[in-house]
Amino acid sequence: MLSIRNLNVKYGQIHALHGISLEVETGRVVAVVGANGAGKTTLMMTLAGLLSPAGGEILFEGTALPKEAYKILGRGICLVPERRRLYANLTVRENLLMGAYLRKDKAGIAADLERMYDLFPIMRERIKQYAGTLSGGEQQMVAIARGLMSRPKLLLLDEPSLGLAPLMVQFMFKTIREINAEGVTVLLAEQNAFQALDMADDAFVLETGRVLVSGSGKELLENPLVRKAYLGVKH
């Protein structure tokens, strides 16, 4: 579905991604794990069209990814950004409607709102509440729901577990699985390597802007290099 070849991204002099290549196959949950500063967010922002690559190739469903963010969204890629970035002075419902900004099918939008409230029942009680007043976990739910409102084929999730309580993290990962089961391909960036690898079909370990190893989630969980560096297991 998505194939990235030799992707380079720079912030001025800072070379954040050094020739990354990775594949995301349709229908899977793919995790990109790595420490803080590894380049996960840079990768996600580039895929969403918010940063432009300095070199390399990104193909989505066989054709080159457009440059403009709104065209990328139109092609079916939506980013749920790190730290949620909700519109604090819009209500929960208005935030979700912003997710459907490019859609014109009123009936479909209304039906999808209902689906979101079913996915996250807590949100139904918060429809009219301003997003800035929600707890971290609730904000993450709204951020994911806002992303889903665009009806993406590929959902990019940047650190959905960041700053959440352990139970909430579990709930989030479970929900990501449910979303995937409904046919949305997921590319997930996480520092929380253990849980991300545990639930992912495929995974890539990123280190200072390079892909260190890749494989199935389970394989990487067993990989001694990964265990040592990311899972805190001593040998």
């Binding site: 918010l50 963010a69 709104y70 970035r85 604090a88 665009s150």
Partner: peptide, 12 residues
């Protein structure tokens, strides 16, 4: 509120 996040949702 957040123009990058607005761009993410396809706002020009």
């Amino acid at each position: 509120e957040d123009f990058v996040a607005a761009e993410m949702m396809g706002v020009n």
